[in-house]
Amino acid sequence: MAAGAALVDVVAVRAGRRAAAWRRELAAALATRPVDDRWMLTGAALAAVIGLWLLMVALTPGLRHLLPMRSPAKQRAQLDRDGAAVLLRDAALRVPGVRTARIRVRRHRILARTDVHFRDPRQVKADLAAVLDDERDRLALSHPPRIVVRVRQRIP
Rank of each mutant, 00 (worst) to 15 (best):
M1I: 10
A2W: 13
A3S: 12
G4F: 05
A6I: 11
L7R: 07
L7P: 01
V8W: 05
V10W: 15
V11R: 15
V11G: 11
A12T: 12
V13I: 08
A15E: 13
G16L: 00
R18F: 10
A20D: 09
A20T: 08
A21E: 14
W22V: 05
W22A: 02
R23Q: 13
R23I: 13
R23G: 02
L26T: 13
T32S: 10
P34I: 10
V35R: 07
D36M: 05
R38M: 06
R38Q: 12
A44R: 13
L46I: 12
A47S: 14
I50H: 06
L52D: 06
L54T: 10
L54W: 11
L55Y: 02
L55S: 04
L55C: 07
V57F: 12
V57M: 12
T60Q: 12
T60M: 12
P61D: 09
G62W: 08
G62E: 01
G62S: 04
R64V: 15
R64Q: 14
H65T: 09
M69Y: 10
R70H: 03
P72A: 15
P72L: 11
K74R: 15
R76W: 12
R76F: 14
Q78G: 09
R81L: 12
D82H: 13
A84R: 02
A85I: 01
D90V: 04
D90N: 11
A92F: 07
R94E: 12
R94A: 14
V95R: 00
P96I: 09
P96D: 08
P96H: 05
G97F: 03
G97H: 08
R99W: 04
T100A: 08
A101I: 00
A101H: 02
R102D: 07
I103N: 00
R104L: 13
R104M: 05
R106Q: 08
R106Y: 02
H108E: 14
I110V: 14
L111K: 04
L111P: 01
A112D: 05
R113D: 00
R113N: 07
R113V: 00
T114H: 02
T114D: 10
D115K: 04
H117Y: 01
H117G: 00
H117A: 03
F118W: 10
R119L: 14
D120R: 11
R122V: 08
V124W: 00
V124P: 00
K125Q: 08
K125R: 15
K125C: 08
L128N: 00
A130N: 04
D133L: 06
D134T: 06
R136K: 11
D137I: 02
A140M: 11
L141E: 06
L141V: 03
S142E: 04
P144R: 06
P144Y: 06
P145H: 07
P145M: 11
P145T: 06
R146D: 08
R146Y: 14
R146N: 03
V149S: 04
V151E: 01
R152G: 13
R154M: 01
I155G: 08
I155H: 07
P156M: 05
P156H: 13
